[in-house]
Amino acid sequence: MSSELTAVAFPGRAGNATAVAGDSSATRSLAVDVAILMAVAAGIAHLISIRTHWNWWQASGAFFAVITVAQFALGGVLFFKRTSLNVLLFGIWSNVLVVAVYVASRLHALPGQPVTTAHHAPRAPGRSWLPATPEGVGAFDMFSLLLELGLVVLLLTLLPAKWKSRTSTHLMFTGIAFVVFAIWALSTNGTFR
């Protein structure tokens, strides 16, 4: 998987990838057009949010910057009719990763997430004043989530039949992993103590 991703990061070298739907045709399919729009929209959504995330927690701001670049790159590669298997798999699994981080951040505080220290009070060693808590769910982040899920499904439809089945099975296990994570997060009340 990682070697495939490396190849995709430099699309020009992906010559050995299996050609799939759309790759050889002169015009892009409607599904690819929609996928391009969704990738760009998801990129913009993350671009808008970089600053506030950076101010809150630099790691999250950096993560948003990487997502922005990756979504634009995905849109660009799809635009130039690179719908090789590797590109599609990269598009799917990179979006699944973003979705996974999203789900995790809404169910549990993330490792390293800043605690909320009270204003003007010193932080006692070894103890946080307000433990870091899961982030809230808003309309804007739900919109981004739906874009990413839509992208995953669209790109999935473009895969060859064998890969469709294999990838959707992996997606199902990912969904089950989310549920297991949610049950664990309930037991910790979403915070590290």
Binding site: A21, S29, A31, V96, V99, Y102, V103, R106, L107, P134, G136, V137, M142, L145, L146, L149, V152, V153, L156, T157, L158, K164, S165, S168, T169, L171, M172, T174, G175, I176, F178, V179, A182, A185, G190
Partner: peptide
């Protein structure tokens, strides 16, 4: 460029969990 019923269901487990779990926590 479509999904058969079986693949659609499997993908639905993923997408459903991704939407429902954060929403349920908020509720």
């Amino acid at each position: 460029m479509s999904l058969n019923r079986r693949d659609l269901l499997k993908t639905g487990v993923f997408a459903g969990a991704a939407v429902a779990l954060p929403a349920a926590r908020v509720a």
